[in-house]
Design a protein around this nucleic acid. Structure first.
Lengths: 142, 142
DNA sequence: TGTTATTATTACGAATTAGTAATAATATGG
DNA sequence: CCATATTATTACTAATTCGTAATAATAACA
């Protein structure tokens, strides 16, 4: 077998390895990776619609519904119908959600940063460039 | 929020985007990503123990059991107890499994290669180097 | 040689993920 | 306006994933 999907294998390995580290970092925080990613997006953007969250977190709509339910149960976010288009919901972190996220983020940041710091600044930029390039190409093919 | 986990976010995005492409490529083949990865490892290595497969595919042991069950049901692989240590199973693809894998791989290869070909040879090597570096660092922290 | 520890694997059950259909609101084209 | 198409979201269900405990075989060593 021509092993020219080496890039794919290496990407999968690196990702799974990092994903494990993320899970480890989030263990005992009461939220999982998808929940964290959704909260992060909301924290950065201030507010997003469900559809925008789906496009950011890249999980299926039915999975996002589940994630939002969980976070809503924990009172970390609220959903508000948009007045001008009632099909749309605007999602916002609550004060509690924001506070909890900030606490979790601080530790998570240090932990993850200690991994990525194995790359120097230039290497990290190069990684961004390369990953964006294949991510974009891959998205284009959908 | 200091956005210095940009690398993490970009990696996640690129991965999920590629993962979608992989799923698309494997749709209608009757096997999913984990099943494909396990078969690929077996195809390349000839045979592996369950534990070796777990270390390759990087999923929990309980998940691997499920994957192996699925593939065994489809008669794509067989399990043989090792004589010298009966705790250990040696997993091998059947002739059917091998043939099916080759068929699937051929199409999958073209599809995935068309994505990674957006990188030139040098860029691809660089990507390998960078991903291995953070993958390794991340694994070390376990 | 008989505990005790370690390793490989499976069993079980709960949580999550995801595909598909349903619902509800809005847009569009006659 | 009305019928139809499109968009956003949820409901429902099946499949998968995963943590943890159980089992079974082997190793270690007093």
């Amino acid at each position: 077998m021509k092993n020219e999907l080496k890039s794919l294998i290496i990407l999968f390995k690196a990702y799974h390895s990092i994903e494990k580290a993320v899970k480890h970092s989030l263990a005992h925080t009461g939220i999982n990776v998808n929940e964290f990613t959704a909260m992060e997006a909301l924290y950065v953007k201030g507010s997003l619609t469900t559809q925008e969250l789906i496009d950011t977190v890249l999980i299926p709509n039915s999975s996002m519904t589940y994630v939002l339910e969980r976070l809503n149960e924990k009172a970390y976010l609220v959903k508000n119908k948009k007045e001008s288009d009632k099909r749309i919901q605007i999602i916002v972190l609550t004060a509690l959600g924001t506070r909890v996220f900030e606490e979790i983020y601080e530790k998570h940041f240090s932990y993850m940063r200690s991994i990525f710091d194995v790359l120097d600044k230039e290497e990290e930029q190069q990684l961004h460039y390369l990953l964006k390039k294949i991510g974009k190409k891959s998205g284009d093919k959908e």
